[in-house]
Design a protein around this nucleic acid. Structure first.
Lengths: 363, 363
DNA sequence: GTGAAAGCGCTAACAT
DNA sequence: ATGTTAGCGCTTTCAC
C-alpha cells in the first residue's frame, strides 16, 4: 500500500506538496499538479482514511440509529438520510438499537469517535437515549429525529405524532365510528406513548369513555398486528368498528387478522395505519394512514447536522444531482432558525377507512 | 480528549503497560490493573479508533453492499449479517448500490481502507462487481452473497436461484397451469437473468413455447409489480392463468394489480413470489413463494469472512447470546471446505398458488 | 509554491 | 510484568 511519501518521491516533490494537492489540487502549480497526478496513478495511491482522520479528527461518517431496519419506514428514512449525506460528501452508517447493550458497546468502541455525528431516529426508550448521550459525552453532535426536542438543544427534526394521531382519530369519530380499538407499539416506546395520547385526546374530545376503549400493545410488526386484530375481534358481541394501528406494519397485520376472522374491511371494520410506507397503497384494501415527509426529514436532519458541524451552507451539492429546492423545503418546515425543523403529519385517505375531512385549522 | 499517555501518567505507569492492558486486561498484575482502570474511569478515557486502526490496519468494520435497503429482503439480510458480525465483535456498515458512481466514490474514499472486508449481496450488474473489485484492488477480502461463485475464489454464499425458480414453475405447470406470464426485474440484473432462465427451463421441460410466454421487466418494486400485472391482464382474450414474479415485492404489486382488474386470486389467477419475506404470509391471499434461509446466509457470510481474515474459529461468541448451533448450519449447507456455502431455496405453498409437490430429488 | 519537521494516539518489538 | 522507543500515514505550521 503506497503512502504519501512514495507519491512524493515518485513525483520528485515533498510530502507537503502532495498533501497540499490532496486538500486542494488548485493550490499547486499546473506542472506540479500533473506530476503528482501521474505519480498517484502510477502507484495506485489512495490516502489512508485512518491517518487522515487521526490528524483532522474528522471521519466523514455519520451514524444513523434506528430501532429496526426491517421496518420499511426506517429503511426509507435511512435511505433518505444516506442520500442527503452523500450529497454533502458524508457516508451514513446504519446502527440498530434492538439490543441496547450491543449497540452501546459498538457505538462506544467503534462508531463514536469514528463518527462525526449521530442521528438517532425515534430512539426514545429513555435508557437508549441517555445511554447514547453518555457514550458520546457531548463531543459529538446529535441531531435526533423524533417527537420531542433534543435535551441538548443541538437541533432536532420534530414530528408531532400526537397531533397526527389525534387528527386521524377525530376524523374517524366524526365519520360516525363509535367503537374504536387501538393497536399499539411497545410500552417502553415513547413515540408509542405519544400516539396513544393523541388517540385518547380525540376520544376525550368526542366524549367517549377513554378507559373503556380496548388497547393492545406489542412489537411494531406484521405479526403483532395480526395477533392483536384476532384478539380484538374474537368476541362478536363487542366487536370494534374501527382498528387504529400505530403504524402501517401493524395495520397490514390487522387486515390479515380481520380477514381470518371473516370480518370485512371497510364494510364491517375500518383499519388505519401510520407512516404511509409504499406498501400502504398496495395492500387490500389500500390503507388510510398518516403520511410523513420522509425525504424532507432526511434532508433536514443532514442539513441540521451540517450546521452543527459548522459546515458552510453552500458546501452541499458538491456531489451531483442536487437541484435547488427552496420550494421543496417550504411547506412542511418551520422554526429552523432554532435548529428545530418541525414536519407535519398529513392524513391520507384510502379505502380501508373513510374519516371525515378536517374542518378548519385547529388541530 | 484524554490520550493513552494521560492514563499512563495518571496511573503512574508507562503507555506500554496501559496498551497491554487494553489488549488483554489479564496480562497485567491485578494491582496495576486496578490503577489503570481507575485512571481510565477518572479521565473518561476512550481509545482512539483512528490511531488504533492506523497501527493495526484493522478497523473492526465490514461493509455490506446491497442494491436497495428498502427491499425487505435486503433489510432482513443486512440485519442477519449485522447480528452475526456483532457476535464476532465487528460492526457491519450498510452501503447501497443504486448509484454506482456514488457508491464507488464513497467506497474508494472512505469504506475501503477503513473496512476489513466487503460483503456484496447480489450486486451482479457487471459494472458494479468489477468496479468494486477494482476499487478494492485485491487488498480487502470480498465474500459475495450471490448466485455465482466469486471470481477471486475468496469464498461465497451461493444461492441457486435458477433451480429455485425452475422448481417453483415446474410445480405450477404440473398442477395444470397452461398460460404463465413472468414479472421480472431489471434487464441488467444477473440474478434476474438467472431467475428468468430457471423459468424458461421449466417451460421448455414442459414443452411450452418459451418465446411466446409474456415477460415483463422493471425495477424490483411494488409499483412495478402492480403495473406489470395490469398490463399483463389488460387483454381478457389472452389472459395468463398464472403470474410468476421474481420477488415478493413484485408479487404483492401483482396482487393489487389483479384486484384492480377484477381478477380473483387464486380462483382466476395464481401469483407466486420469491424470497419469503415476512410480508408474504400477511398479504391477501398469502403468497406462495420461494424461501431462502436468510439467517443462515448472514451467519455463513460472516463465518466465511472470519476465515478470510484469518480469525480463529472459536473467536466468535465473545459477545453474548451465541448458542452453539452445529444443527443450525447443518441442513442447507454444503461445500464449506471450499469456502463456498450453498443454500437451497425451498418452495413454500400458501393460498396465492397451489403448485404440485415435487417428485423425487431431481431438480 | 514548495520543503523540513513535528506530532495526531496508538501498538509492538525490544530491553529491562 | 513493565518501560523505552520507533513508527503507522497523514496534515500543518513554519521557513524558504
Amino acid at each position: 500500500m503506497p503512502a504519501i511519501k512514495d507519491v512524493a518521491r515518485h513525483a520528485g516533490l515533498s510530502v507537503a506538496a502532495v498533501s497540499k494537492y490532496l486538500k486542494n489540487p488548485g493550490s499547486v502549480r499546473p506542472d506540479t499538479r500533473v506530476r503528482i497526478e501521474s505519480a498517484i496513478r502510477a502507484l495506485q495511491y489512495r490516502p489512508s482514511p485512518f491517518a487522515r482522520s487521526l490528524r483532522t479528527r474528522r471521519s466523514g461518517m455519520i451514524a444513523v440509529v434506528v430501532p429496526d431496519v426491517r421496518n420499511p419506514f426506517f429503511a426509507e428514512l435511512f435511505d433518505s438520510i444516506r442520500i442527503a449525506a452523500r450529497a454533502r460528501g458524508w457516508l451514513a452508517l446504519l446502527e440498530t438499537s434492538d439490543d441496547l447493550q450491543g449497540l452501546l458497546a459498538a457505538v462506544r468502541s467503534l462508531s463514536v469517535g469514528s463518527v462525526d455525528g449521530v442521528i438517532p431516529c425515534f430512539l426514545d426508550d429513555e435508557h437508549t437515549a441517555s445511554g447514547l448521550a453518555e457514550a458520546l459525552h457531548g463531543r459529538t453532535p446529535v441531531i435526533p429525529v423524533s417527537w420531542q426536542a433534543s435535551p441538548q438543544g443541538g437541533g432536532t427534526v420534530l414530528l408531532d405524532v400526537r397531533s397526527g394521531m389525534r387528527r386521524m382519530v377525530r376524523g374517524l369519530l366524526d365519520a360516525g365510528r363509535v367503537a374504536p380499538a387501538y393497536v399499539g407499539g411497545p410500552e417502553d416506546s415513547t413515540v408509542s406513548i405519544q400516539k396513544l395520547a393523541g388517540f385518547r385526546d380525540a376520544l376525550a374530545t368526542a366524549g367517549l369513555p377513554v378507559q373503556a376503549v380496548p388497547v393492545q400493545r406489542g412489537p411494531f410488526s406484521l405479526q403483532a398486528g395480526h395477533d392483536a386484530a384476532r384478539s380484538l375481534l374474537a368476541d362478536p358481541a363487542r366487536r370494534p368498528d374501527c382498528l387504529v394501528a400505530e403504524n402501517d406494519l401493524l395495520a397490514v397485520g390487522c387486515l390479515r387478522g380481520a380477514r381470518e376472522m371473516g370480518v370485512r374491511v371497510p364494510d364491517d371494520l375500518w383499519v388505519t395505519g401510520f407512516d404511509d410506507i409504499p406498501l400502504a397503497a398496495m395492500v387490500d384494501p389500500p390503507l388510510t394512514t398518516v403520511s410523513l415527509p420522509i425525504r424532507e426529514m432526511g434532508e433536514a436532519a443532514v442539513r441540521l447536522m451540517a450546521a452543527a458541524l459548522g459546515v458552510p451552507e453552500d458546501a452541499a451539492g458538491e456531489a451531483a444531482g442536487e437541484a435547488s429546492n427552496d420550494a421543496a423545503k417550504g411547506p412542511a418546515a418551520s422554526g429552523e432558525a432554532l435548529g428545530i425543523l418541525e414536519v407535519l403529519p398529513v392524513v391520507v385517505v384510502r379505502e380501508s377507512a373513510r374519516p371525515a375531512p378536517e374542518a378548519g385549522q385547529m388541530s
